[in-house]
Design a protein around this nucleic acid. Structure first.
Lengths: 284, 284
DNA sequence: AGGACGATTCGGCCCTCACCGAAGTGTGAT
DNA sequence: ATCACACTTCGGTGAGGGCCGAATCGTCCT
C-alpha cells in the first residue's frame, strides 16, 4: 500500500460554492480585505477547471456565443440554433445558469435566458479572441452572407464589434480622441467629442464601470472599444439610426445616414461602411 | 430518414488550426484587415470550446496555475506538484503545448515548459478571478502557512499580486499616480514618480505592451497593476531588494528595506507589509 | 374542456478521456 | 560498457457526460 500518487481526489467533478451570487465577474468597487486568515482546516481556491468545463462543450459554447448579442433567448430558440434536442438544451441551460454565466427568467411556459452581465460578455469575447480557429463548412449562400455580415458589423453585448467596431476605434485613435499609449484612454478631446455628440460621458448610470475598455474582436483579432463609452456610443448610433440591428440577429447594418455621419465625424474608410449585402435572415 | 437534428458533427472533439503560432493572445499592433471575404465554402470561427477544454481538467488547470509564477518547470516537477504519474503529465503537457498555452524547450533528457507569454498569464488570472471557489482541505500547518503567504504577496507572471499588489494599486491611486476614472491610467505624476524611482517609463523594450493593465486578483477579487508598468515596478522592487522571491515558489516576502520604502513612498498600511510568517517551504 | 405547445425528467446508449503500469527511448554519468 | 534517470509510448480500465426519445408536467389558446 501507500500509493505514490496521493489519493484519488481527481474525479474532476465536484460541486462548488459560487462567490458572489449571479454577478459573475465583479470588477472593482470597494470591498474590504476579508479572506485574510486561511488558518482554518480548509481554504478556498478558484476553480478554473469548473468554469472552463462549462465552456468546454461545443453546444454550451455555441449557446454562450449566441447570447453575446446581448439579447434574451428562449430555450427553444437556443435548441434550434444549436441543433440539439430540447431536452439536451434544458440540461445545458441548467448547468450554465447554476454556473453563474447565464441568468434565467421564467414566464409562463417559457424559459428566457441571457448572459449574466457585461463582465461575462467581455470575458467571453476575450476568450474567443484567444481561442484557436476552427474550419467550419458553409452550407448555403444565405449562411455565407450571414457570416460576412457578422464579420462586418455586429453587436457585442452592448457595443459595436466587427470591422466597423475596429475601424471606429482606429479612427478615434487617429484623431486623438482615444490614446493608446497608456492603456486605452479617452482623451479630453475625446470627452468633448462625445459631449458634442450629445453623449454625456459622466452619466452616473455607468459610473460603476470602467469608461473605456477594450474587447478583443474575434473576427479581426484587434481591439475595439467597449466599456461604458463603447456602450454609450452604440446606443447613440442606434438612436440616431446610423446603424440598425436586424431583429433576431446581432448583425448591424450601416444606414445611409450612418455612412454620412461616420464619414464626416471619423473619416471612416469605405470598406468599413460597405452596405450589408443581403437582408439578414432569421436565426442562422 | 431526415433527422431533425442535423448531422452528428457534435463529437465535441476535433483538430484545429492555430492562428498565430505559439503566441496565443496577440493583443494589438497593426495587422491589416484580411479575413474579410468569407465567400469560400468554409469559414473560420473561434473555437472557444477547444480552448476551454484545455483548462477544463483539474490537473491541467493546476499545472497552468503553477506556471503562473512565470518560471520554467520540468515535466517531473509538475508531475510531483499535480500528484499524477509522469506518463499522465506527458499527455497533459502535449495537449497544453499543442494548444498554444505553453511553450516547451527540450534540453538533454529534460523537458522544460513555461507559459506561452504574458497574455496567456493575464488571461489565466482573469479567468481565475471569475471562477467559482472551491473548498480545499488543508492537510498540514506548512500548507496553511504557504497558502497564507500566497494570499499575502506573490508574483503573477511578472508583476506583484496578492494583498500587496492590491495595496500598491490602491495607494498609487490614492496619491494620484494612477487614475481610475477612464480605465486605469498612469498619470503625469505617476510617470514622474516612476522616473524618480529610476524606472524609465518609456523603455522601448516594453513599448509593444500596454503600459498599464489591470489583472483581477484571485485572492482578493480586486484589480491590481499589471502590464509593462506593473512588470517594471516588480523588477525594480526586486532589484532594490524590497521584496524577495522564495526560490521554487511564487511567494514574495517584503524585506525590512521594502517595508521602509513602501511606507515612505506609498504609505502602505501595515497589513500589507506584514512579514511572511515562515520561511516558505519547497514546492507545495 | 380539450388540445397544442414549451419545457422538463428519466433511462439508456455510446464515446471520450484521465488515469495507471509496464515497457521502451534517449541522454548523461560512472 | 553499463547503469541511472527523465521522459515517452502503449494498452487497458473506468468514470463522466453529452446525446436522444418517450413520457410527463404546466401553461396558454380555443
Amino acid at each position: 500500500m501507500n500509493h505514490p500518487y496521493k489519493k484519488h481526489l481527481h474525479t474532476n467533478h465536484q460541486h462548488i460554492t459560487r462567490p458572489g451570487g449571479e454577478r459573475a465577474g465583479q470588477q472593482d468597487g470597494e470591498r474590504g480585505a476579508e479572506r485574510g486568515g486561511a488558518a482554518g482546516s480548509a481554504a478556498e481556491t478558484p476553480d478554473v477547471a469548473a468554469l472552463a468545463q462549462l465552456l468546454a462543450d461545443r453546444t454550451r459554447a455555441a449557446i454562450c456565443m449566441a447570447l453575446l448579442d446581448g439579447g434574451t433567448w428562449t430555450a427553444g430558440e437556443l435548441a434550434d440554433y444549436a441543433a440539439v434536442a430540447p431536452s439536451t438544451t434544458t440540461e445545458h441551460l441548467n448547468l450554465l445558469v447554476s454556473g453563474g454565466l447565464l441568468t434565467e427568467q421564467r414566464r409562463g411556459r417559457r424559459r428566457y435566458v441571457r448572459l449574466a452581465g457585461p463582465d461575462t460578455a467581455e470575458a467571453l469575447e476575450n476568450l474567443a479572441g484567444l481561442a484557436p480557429y476552427r474550419q467550419v463548412p458553409v452550407r448555403s449562400l444565405a449562411e455565407a452572407n450571414h457570416r460576412r455580415a457578422l464579420h462586418h458589423a455586429r453587436t457585442c453585448y452592448d457595443h459595436i464589434a466587427g470591422a466597423l467596431g475596429v475601424a471606429i476605434a482606429d479612427a478615434m485613435t487617429a484623431r486623438g480622441l482615444l490614446a493608446r499609449d497608456y492603456g486605452l484612454v479617452l482623451t479630453k478631446d475625446g470627452a468633448r467629442w462625445l459631449t458634442a455628440l450629445g453623449i454625456p460621458d459622466t452619466a452616473p448610470s455607468v459610473a460603476h464601470r470602467a469608461h473605456v475598455r477594450t474587447c478583443l474582436d474575434w473576427t479581426m483579432r484587434r481591439q475595439h472599444l467597449s466599456g461604458a463609452v463603447g456602450a454609450a456610443l452604440c446606443r447613440h448610433a442606434m438612436d440616431q439610426a446610423w446603424i440598425v440591428k436586424a431583429p433576431g440577429t446581432r448583425i448591424l447594418t450601416v444606414t445611409d445616414a450612418g455612412r454620412t455621419a461616420f464619414r464626416e465625424r471619423l473619416a471612416l474608410p469605405d470598406e468599413a461602411l460597405a452596405p450589408s449585402l443581403t437582408l439578414p435572415v432569421s436565426r442562422p
